[in-house]
Lab assay of single mutants.
Amino acid sequence: MAAAAAAGAGPEMVRGQVFDVGPRYTNLSYIGEGAYGMVCSAYDNVNKVRVAIKKISPFEHQTYCQRTLREIKILLRFRHENIIGINDIIRAPTIEQMKDVYIVQDLMETDLYKLLKTQHLSNDHICYFLYQILRGLKYIHSANVLHRDLKPSNLLLNTTCDLKICDFGLARVADPDHDHTGFLTEYVATRWYRAPEIMLNSKGYTKSIDIWSVGCILAEMLSNRPIFPGKHYLDQLNHILGILGSPSQEDLNCIINLKARNYLLSLPHKNKVPWNRLFPNADSKALDLLDKMLTFNPHKRIEVEQALAHPYLEQYYDPSDEPIAEAPFKFDMELDDLPKEKLKELIFEETARFQPGYRS
C-alpha cells in the first residue's frame, strides 16, 4: 500500500510507478496490472468513496492506442447498470505532455475469474450472474457493438453480487458484411471463450460470437473449470467437437473457408456428449439454455433477447427493466489503419471533457 500523499506533496508512487492523480484522489492501494497499465484503488475526496484507477501508458504502440481509444469512446457513450462506466479521466493539459491516461471507475471487490478459483456457486448465484451478463449484453448488442472478449476476468463483482462487464478494448461495431482481413492475426481474445466460426472463417462476425462466450462462462460457473481449455488453435476446435459432436452437413455448409471445411470433413465422426453427463448436478433449465448458447452453427445460436426470456431466468426476466441503447454506435473511421500519432490526438480530444474549465 502506498503511503497517503500529504496535501501538495506531488504524485504518489505505487510499486515504483508514478500515479499522478492528486489532489482529488489519494490513499492509493495496488490492485493489479494488465498488459499496459496498473490498477489501484484510491480515495475520492470529492465523492467520499474509494474508486478504481487504471493507469494506461499506450502511446508507444499502435495496438494499445487503438484499444484505449475504443474503450474510452464506447464506455463514455454507454450507460447501463451492468456495464462499468467511466467516472473521470485524468491526463496532462497538453498533448505533448500526455504520456499516461488515468481512467477512474467504480471500485468492484472482485471478478468472476477470482471468485470461481475459490468458491463453488449455488444455482441461485449462477442464475443471477447469468441474468446480469445477458442484461448488459442486450444493451451492448442493441448499440450494434460486439464485445468480443467476454470471459470471467472481464466480469466485475461486488459483495452485493452486482455484476458489471468491463474491458471493451477489443470491441467492434457489428459488421457481418465487412471482410476484416487479418482478423485472426489481430484477434487476441482469450482462445477458450472463442466461437468456432472465428477459427473457421475470417469473413465478418456477428453478435452470436458473444453468446458463445457467455455459454462458455455459464459452463464454467457450473463446474469451476473452463469447458474448452484448448492449448492452441486446432486443439481448441477438437475440444469443442469432442463435446458438441461432429457438425451436420448443414452446419458445414455455413463454413465459407474450404480449407477449414475440408479439415472438419477429414475428422472421424464424434457423438455429442449429453450435458447432464458433463454437469450431473446442474439445473435442467440451465443445461437447456447452455445447449442453445453453445450451438456450433452461429445462425442457430440463441440471441440475447431470447436467452433473457428463457425459463431458467424467469424469476428475473423483465423486458421493461432491460434497457437498450438510445442509438446504434458508430465509429467515424476504422481505427485499425491509423498511425499511433493520430490515435493519440483522438484520445486527447475524447478525454477533453474531463479537463478543468472544459467548454463543449
Rank of each mutant, 00 (worst) to 15 (best):
R277I: 15
D167P: 06
D106A: 11
G22A: 12
K151E: 10
N297F: 13
R77I: 03
A143P: 06
R67V: 12
N253G: 09
L170A: 03
Q62R: 14
C40P: 15
D100G: 12
P23G: 03
K344H: 08
R91V: 13
P339F: 01
E326G: 02
L69D: 05
E334A: 00
K272P: 09
C161Y: 05
I31K: 07
R24F: 01
T68R: 14
A5C: 04
R50N: 12
E197C: 05
T110F: 00
E96T: 08
I324C: 03
T26L: 08
I324V: 00
K73D: 12
Y358E: 08
Y263K: 10
Y128S: 11
D283T: 05
Y263E: 03
Y139I: 07
A2Q: 00
E81V: 13
L346V: 07
C127T: 08
R70C: 14
Y36I: 15
L294S: 07
V49T: 09
D100W: 05
K48Y: 10
L146E: 00
H120V: 04
I165R: 01
P274I: 02
P229Y: 02
S284W: 05
F129I: 15
L278T: 10
N262W: 04
L252Q: 14
G230K: 00
G245W: 06
P280Q: 12
P319N: 04
L75H: 08
I209N: 14
E197Q: 08
L155F: 06
P11G: 07
A42P: 05
N271Q: 04
K54N: 12
Y193R: 10
T160L: 05
K340P: 10
P11A: 12
K138D: 06
I31H: 11
I103H: 11
H269N: 15
I165C: 05
R225D: 07
S266T: 02
Y43Q: 14
Q306D: 05
D124N: 15
G357T: 01
M221D: 10
Y128I: 05
Q17E: 05
G37W: 14
S248Y: 14
N262Y: 14
G10N: 06
D44G: 00
V14T: 09
P11V: 09
G22N: 12
N144G: 01
Y131P: 01
L75R: 13
M13W: 00
S41E: 05
Y139H: 00
H178C: 04
E341I: 08
F329P: 00
C40Y: 14
Y316M: 03
D124I: 07
E322A: 15
T118C: 07
Y317I: 06
K114W: 10
P93Q: 14
K344R: 13
W275R: 15
I209Q: 12
L343K: 06
D251L: 10
L157W: 04
I243P: 04
D332V: 14
I209W: 11
R353N: 04
L28W: 02
V101E: 15
V145Q: 06
R261P: 06
L146F: 05
